[in-house]
Design a binder for these strands. Structure first.
Length: 906
DNA sequence: GCAGATTGA
């Protein structure tokens, strides 16, 4: 059996190495360290084994493998949707399982020999793990199943006698010449190549690609990172692209004709008729296509050409405003009409449609709003849910609703469009709807993993960027980092390192990008890179989906992002740095191949990738506060929420919590039915607590002030601009608004009014370290709320001097969010007791009022209440007698509390 | 003595 030979061989290699190193002079300290490391490794491998054994008993094919298979299958007879549909999953599953089982069995049997009595050095351990990873990778990427068992060992180079250096060298070079099939079958040749490569890298030669710059300089980075090319994110239609370029002699034609030719060059054009047939035959269709295939712009036009628009509008939803606008503009151009006539878009604050509009692009939230007024979507003949794979909160809700509508309205066509992952899941959800796949247009991207785990991803990212800069041909680099802080740190460090290298390297332009960055600085990333220079974009998640940067050739992916999670029990939100999912790793990788073939450097090992990363990101609906979702579903007439058809149901605890909250706010009655107040609250596109605050403000005659506060609160913390070097100034500027310790809500009101008094001056914002963009948004929201007040018959009334009535309105919305001071200076929430603190950024963080109402709880380094305002405990009984009893409030006035720490409300 | 990723209505 060949496996046996392999074992023998490996053992030889290992013995030799350990003899060399074991020279008997090892210190006690080293011995202990070695032992500890070995124990750690053993522990790790044991855990892995149990995980494997589990897999062995219930073998499961990952989504990725399924996709792989389908892609391969469709390559055989491209575009033939019939053959795709006929294909048998059972048979394929069976085959895969058998194979998987064999592989795993092999591995597990293979492992124990490692832990005999022999001592393993760190180097050996790493080597073994490395080999194992490669082996697994290669098995995975093997195309022909038959070949799996027959890989061949390379000649050993460390046997007695002469070593054939020439042959050895040939192997290492071959890797770069082509990834031939023999090479792929041979994991240890790869290893050799890697070692050679590593030695070569130890002295980093500079300018090898460019004779003119290449002097005799040698740069050595102290901690070079080793990468290994593991796989390729295949490009689709890469060849086609080359030929499909519009012809040069089109000068004589009109712009309109050229647009029509461009349309025909899109990959989707080939499948036009098949697609239309499929739409005709099926009510629901899942469409899977890579980005750049033209599905968003073309499909609605095809449907229009096929006459669907005669029966009703074609609606296409997008998760983002910008996308809806720009796509609509493009399609209007292609159809030769004006935007807003036949083709229009509808987003918050902007409705660019008319009665003539037949193709309507909109944000998904907008369609949800429309559903409130038109529950059967009667004016639409087709609904397209685009970018479904992003699984935003609103697309998830739409799925459930739209599925229901489709059952009631057989004439409504439903298209769900998504990138590759999860297609089967969508299909299952929509009653086994057929899947229509077609290729996109993307260049291939090489994927490289590190050979060993990196302890500090930021440091690793910096080194990688510098290595790319010095060694790789020109092309821009995109680095994904979790947040603003990390971006700033990396930027500084990179600048410092570049200064150290002086003029011997090419110019490196560093561009940070994150959502909170002022927009004039954001624009920098889109400026073309000067000749001979290289641009490095340091980005958060924003570059993963929201914006695309052309010209990116290299992607550096440390594998982390920040993710919000919500604990329904405590009502606490937290933002944590978490490992990304495989799906988003693929998404990040794809960013390198938009305009030319590229490379992606992942700062984690292949082993981490396959074993530690989740397949898909947890959908938003499972990690967020559902109160406003529940309210809008209730107002759509969906009563039994626990049975609502969610694709991934949120935790029922979260649902129940939301129902309880809405009941406490008076939006629902004991039967769970929407009350009149609830109906009014649902009109506002806000969190129910904020809506309640507005509805109540009618009673206290201060709706004018309250909507300003609500608008500011819904913008959140991005109002303030606090650059690192000017933190003191920024904090001082804030103090003006907190005069008299009025509380954060009133401070927001003061900020808004001051800005309004300066006639919405940009200058004023700069002076006070406030973000203009956020303020403009607040103004838009405020305007919208003002318009809605009329609809729910609330008069705009102002009562600026009665701060207590404003406070009472706030309490009326946020009474479940109250806390009282403890002896030690911390706070305790009243209803579901837990210890919390006032956020240091709050104006009241030094004042410590006895009772406070807070806007939200966040968990960072401590449990913090963000945005707090003082209240009188009597108000709770007055405003929410159903929620608070006298005993809840009595404690406050008890003698235990030192009188000095409380402060009377003005 | 903080430290906010990203959308959307």
């Amino acid at each position: 059996m060949q496996v046996v030979i392999v074992r023998e061989d490996k053992r030889n290699v290992r013995r030799k190495v350990s003899e060399d190193e074991d020279d008997g002079t090892e210190s006690e300290e080293e011995r202990l360290r070695d032992q500890r490391e070995r124990e750690e490794l053993e522990q790790h491998l044991r855990e892995r084994d149990t995980a494997r054994t589990r897999k062995l008993t219930e073998p499961k094919m990952s989504k990725k493998e399924q996709e792989e298979f389908v892609r391969r299958d469709s390559a055989v007879d491209k575009g033939d949707i019939e053959s795709l549909r006929k294909f048998s999953w059972q048979e394929y599953m069976k085959k895969r399982k058998q194979k998987k089982v064999l592989e795993l069995k092999d591995d597990i049997e293979d492992e124990p020999y490692l832990f005999g009595d022999e001592k393993l050095t760190e180097r050996e351990i790493r080597e073994f793990r490395y080999k194992r990873e490669i082996y697994e990778l290669i098995k995975k990427s093997t195309q022909e199943e038959d070949n799996v068992g027959e890989y061949r060992m390379p000649d050993a180079y460390d046997q007695q006698g002469s070593v054939d250096q020439e042959k050895r060298f040939a192997v290492s070079v071959q890797r770069y010449r082509d990834m031939g099939s023999a090479e792929k079958m041979n994991p240890f040749a790869e290893q050799e190549a890697w070692e050679d490569h590593q030695i070569e890298n130890a002295a980093l030669k500079f300018g090898a690609k460019n004779k003119e710059v290449s002097d005799n300089y040698e740069f050595v980075f102290e901690d070079q990172i080793d990468f290994i090319k593991a796989s390729v994110l295949a490009g689709d239609n890469y060849e086609d692209e080359m030929h499909a370029k519009p012809s040069q002699d089109s000068a004589g034609k009109s712009a309109f004709h050229m647009l029509q030719e461009d349309r025909k060059a899109l990959p989707i054009y080939t499948y036009r008729d098949q697609l239309l047939n499929a739409v005709k035959d099926h009510q629901v269709l899942i469409i899977v296509g890579e980005t750049g295939s033209g599905k968003t712009t073309q499909i609605p036009q095809y449907l229009h050409e096929a006459g669907y628009t005669k029966l009703g509008k074609v609606g296409c939803t997008q998760p983002r405003r910008v996308a809806a606008m720009s796509v609509a503009a493009r399609v209007a151009q292609e159809m030769g009409g004006k935007l807003g006539h036949e083709v229009g878009y509808s987003i918050r604050f902007e409705d660019c449609t008319s009665e003539k509009t037949i193709l309507k692009y909109m944000t998904d939230g907008m369609l949800l709003r429309e559903l409130l007024g038109e529950p059967d979507l009667g004016s639409y003949s087709v609904i397209i849910v685009d970018e479904a794979h992003e699984r935003t909160l609103r697309t998830d809700i739409l799925f459930g609703l739209v599925k229901d509508i489709a059952r009631a309205r057989p004439d409504l066509k439903l298209l769900i469009s998504s990138a590759t992952m999860d297609a089967e899941k969508f299909s299952d959800f929509f009653d086994q709807a057929p899947i229509f796949r077609f290729p996109g247009r993307r260049y291939p991207v090489d994927i490289c993993f590190t050979t060993a785990p990196e302890a500090d991803y930021m440091d690793a990212a910096i080194t990688t960027v510098l290595t790319i800069h010095v060694k790789e041909p020109l092309g821009d680099v995109l680095v994904f980092l979790p947040g603003q802080e990390e971006i700033e740190a990396v930027e500084e460090n990179l600048k410092h390192k570049i200064r150290g290298l002086g003029t011997k390297i090419r110019e490196l332009i560093i561009c940070p990008i994150y959502a909170n960055l002022p927009s004039e600085l954001q624009a920098k990333i889109f400026e073309p890179t000067p000749e001979g220079a290289r641009k490095v974009v340091l980005a958060t998640n924003i570059a993963e989906t929201s914006l695309t940067i052309d010209g990116i050739k290299y992607v550096v992916d440390p594998g982390f992002s920040k993710m919000k999670s919500y604990n329904p029990r405590t009502g606490m939100e937290s933002l944590l740095v978490t490992p990304i999912s495989k799906a988003s790793a693929t998404q990040r990788t794809g960013r390198a191949g938009r305009t030319s073939p590229g490379k992606c450097y992942r700062l984690y090992t292949a082993f981490n990738y396959y074993n530690d990363l989740e397949d898909n990101t947890v959908p938003e609906i499972q990690r967020t506060n559902l109160a406003s979702v529940v309210l809008s579903l209730k107002s759509l007439g969906i009563h039994n929420l626990l049975n609502f058809d969610f694709m991934d149901p949120p935790p029922s605890e979260a649902l129940i919590k939301s129902l309880e909250l809405l009941f406490a706010l008076g939006a629902l009655n004991q039967l769970g039915e929407l009350t009149k107040a609830g109906r009014r609250m649902a009109e506002f596109p806000l969190d129910p607590m904020l809506s309640k605050m507005i509805v109540v403000s009618d009673k206290y005659k201060c709706s004018d002030e309250i909507i300003s506060i609500a608008a500011m609160l819904s913008i959140g913390p991005s109002i303030f601009y606090r650059p690192k070097d000017k933190q003191v100034h920024a904090d001082n500027a804030m103090k003006n608004f907190h005069v008299g310790n009025v509380g954060d809500h009133i401070a927001f009101l003061k900020i808004y009014n001051s800005w309004k008094e300066t006639n919405y001056s940009t200058q004023w914002c700069y002076e006070n370290y406030i973000q203009v963009r956020s303020m403009k948004r607040a103004r838009d929201i405020r305007d919208q709320l003002e318009g809605l007040l009329e609809r729910v018959e609330i008069d705009v009334s102002s009562n600026a001097n009665e701060l207590d009535s404003i406070r009472k309105s706030i309490v009326a919305g946020f009474f479940p969010h109250t806390a009282k001071l403890q002896k030690n200076g911390s706070y305790r929430t009243v209803k579901h007791p837990q210890t919390v603190h006032i956020h240091p950024a709050s104006g009241l963080s030094q004042v410590l009022p006895r009772w406070v109402v807070y806007h939200q709880l966040v968990l960072t380094s401590k449990e913090y209440m963000r945005q707090v305002t003082e209240l009188k405990p009597e108000w709770l009984i007055e405003i929410a007698p159903h929620y608070y009893q006298l005993k809840d409030v009595e404690d406050a006035t008890s003698k235990k509390m030192p009188k000095t720490s409380g402060r009377a409300v003005v």
